[in-house]
Every structure is written in structure tokens, then in C-alpha cells.
Design a protein around this nucleic acid. Sequence first.
DNA 1: TATAAAATAT
DNA 2: TATATTTTAT
Length: 321
Amino acid sequence: MREEEETEWFARWEEQLPSPEELTPLSQTLITPALALAFNIPFPADGNPSPILSPHHLHRPLPPPASPHLPPPPDFETSDLNSASAASGSGGGGDEPARTLKRPRLVWTPQLHKRFVDAVAHLGIKNAVPKTIMQLMSVDGLTRENVASHLQKYRLYLKRMQGLSTSGVAGGGGGAGGGPISASDAATDQLFASAPVPHHFLSRGPVAGLGGPDPFLPYMPVTVPQHHQQITAAMQQQQHYHQRHLGHFGSPTGGGGFDHGFLNRPAVSQSGMHQMLGAAPGMGLMQLTPSAAVSFVDDLETARGGSGERKVLTLFPTGED
DNA sequence: TATAAAATAT
DNA sequence: TATATTTTAT
């Protein structure tokens, strides 16, 4: 049966992942000989494939913010250029790249955004501030700035939506309207479209005169769930590099999965194609940590609960602490 | 080269 | 913290 296959696949997901050794050398080969020389980085003499390199691949895979209580899963090798060069050999000298540690650009995948929206939805506009959202998302590696930036964009998006819905709003109350829909909106639209936007968001933020909490706020435990595994930003990055264009993941539970229209690009034809081909031929299709997948699936599936509703939304466990 | 998204600064 | 600006990736 299909379920068996999926179970099988799910059990062997790990075997399909590249071993740490596979990953570490990869970061090494990302440095071109010329570049290595330029930075006094000793280059491995025993052959260096380095077939395909792109400027943007030079990023560090994972910044080690290491939350105090959020130990990163061992299955994820935190290899960075620094350690890579060090492992390469004794170089003599120095630790030059340590100072140039810049966080790689965070890519907001639909999944990550989903979590973001859920957090905002449950916090309510009132408490939906970067800090709180970040904590609720409990995504390792995710910074407050990341959330703030995304939140900004998200608000803009909501505003846009409002404007479209209530175009004829007289009086200065709204003010959301106005801006014509730019081409950028379309792009952001599809990104944000991956996550359901709580209707009360569009309706009206904090209802004036109604200081009470949102009806959607049965609980507001502003605590950082520690049990549920954390999705690391690094994971997102990995996916980003290896299969960003594939966009979605299979549906482990067969419940339909949580893939959204991320692939539904209007014209992905050739542009997207050649990039896909150039990605990673041997790479399987799923690098997502199983637990993470389970979490997301669990959230969505549980929320829908075709056979019976049990929790409205279980992104977060019963808050404690 | 232009556009879009994220990071950073204010 | 929110917004504006700048930088970076696509």
C-alpha cells in the first residue's frame, strides 16, 4: 500500500541524507583555488572538484546563535567556513574569516512563513510584536530582526489586501487603500499566499473600543515551547540551497501535505528549469528533518482534523514556564 | 540590468 | 518597535 511505502520512506529518510563528511568537504570546495590563494587559505591538494560555484554559495551554512535551551539537533552538521579551513589543515596562522561572520540571508520558505502567521494569529495583533513572535515560533537561528523585517513586509501585505477589499471606504479611518498593486505585490502575494491569512486580520486589527482579547486567543502563553523540536534556520538555508526550486515536500502522512502554490509560478518554464537542472542531480528530494516535517504536518493536519477536531491549532504545546 | 526580498540603520 | 533605507540575491 501507499501508506506502507511512505512509512518505509519515512523510516529511511535519514539514509538518504548526505553524511556530515559529505557536507563538510562541500563547503571547502566552494572556495575556488584563486579565492583560496587570495585569502591565504590552504587548499587540499588531493583533488578538488569544485565544479560549480556561485558567489552566493560562500555563505556560512549555519550561524551558531545556540539558544541556551535549544541545543541543535545532532543530525545537523554545523560546518562553517571557519571550521572548514581549520580542518583543512593547519594553516598557520590565523583566524581571518572569524571577523567577517555575517549571517546568511534568511529565506522565508512557505513553511517558515506558515509558522510565522500562526504565531501572529495566535498572539493577536496586539501582542504580535517581533520579539514575541520570534519566541513563539521558536525557530532556532531565527533572530528578532528576521521576524521584524518579515513582519514589516507582512503588514504591508495585509494592508494591501485590505485596500483591495475595502476600496470604497470613505472617511479617513481606513487609509490602507491607495497604493496601486505593484508587480512586487504579485510576488509577495504568492509567498504569503502559502499561509492562510486570518480573516480578522483583514477585518480590523485591534477592534477599537473592544479592549478584550481576540476570540481566537483561547490561550496566550508567551512561552517558548521546548519540547517540540525546533526548526532551525539553518535547515531552511540548506533546503534553500539544495532544492529551493522544488519547493514542496511530499506528504509523509498522506493527508494531503502542506504544499502550497509555491510552484505555481506564472512563468517558471525555462528560467526555473535550468536552475533546477543545475541544482543537484543526485540530491534526493527532501532534506527536511523528519521531526520538523511532522511538526508542520501535525499542525496543519491537526488543525483540519478531518476525522474529528481536537485542537484548534496545535502549533504550540500547552504553554508552561 | 532590473526587481524583489531581506538586512540593517534610524 | 516601527519604519525607512540599503544591501544582496535572483
